[in-house]
Design a protein around this nucleic acid. Structure first.
Lengths: 113, 113
DNA sequence: TTGACGTATGCCGATATCGGCATGCGATTG
DNA sequence: CAATCGCATGCCGATATCGGCATACGTCAA
């Protein structure tokens, strides 16, 4: 095999920092492609391509508004990601416990020097 | 610019399905590389490479155990992902509302035909 | 020390990705 | 219809990614 096809997967779509920025911006409401491109400092084709990926995985919806095309958020696709990470929630405290033990050990070592 | 460097980022690390499987398996406890490879049906070098990525972003910790190297979960790195997606939680219901309205509109249209 | 085992790393090929650029397409305006 | 605007798409180059293979590295046992 060569390389796994990761596109058309929500986890992959939000792996791109710029695409995450787009989603954050869209929380404030619908935007045109040009507006998004300008606010995020990217070219129009660049914004359009990222929006396409987000559209294909269902994270944004577009509607025509005259010459413009307004993109809006459809965050329901983020729910699986939220739930998947939530399955590890019980391990966060454990991690902190381990870190805590590590710090205590460090202090002990410093005292001994 | 050429391509953005996405590695050494948790979002990118969990964009790989096999890496997500590794994390899920490690919830049950520490495993050696060979065990992970066998349980997930991948080669030993393949498992080792994925584990390296997960280690570099801090999602797993390794410790030596004789000839073996046991990998364990450190899920604290998943917390930012959980929180980031959580920022969109308020939009999930909205999304359903919009879908609901869309379905209603469809029914209306069908009635009119 | 030598051999065996478990793991990591290096190299390669195939492919996917991203950014920039030019251009094509659709809708509006005159 | 022609011109223009907003957006999408295609092509390209540079690079990153993943899987497979061979091999180097480190540890333990004899």
């Amino acid at each position: 095999m060569t390389r796994a096809a990761t596109t058309s997967d929500v986890f992959n779509a939000i792996a791109e920092p710029q695409r995450r920025e787009i989603l954050v911006l869209l929380r404030a409401g619908e935007r045109s492609v040009a507006e998004l491109a300008q606010e995020l400092g990217m070219t129009q084709p660049g914004a359009s391509k990222h929006l396409r990926v987000l559209r294909e995985v269902g994270l944004v919806r577009d509607r025509k508004a005259g010459k413009q095309r307004l993109y809006g958020l459809d965050a329901s696709g983020l729910r699986p990601v939220h739930e998947w990470t939530g399955c590890f929630e019980q391990f966060w405290n454990e991690s902190f416990d381990r870190l805590d033990a590590y710090v205590k050990d460090l202090k002990q070592t410093r005292k001994a020097e």
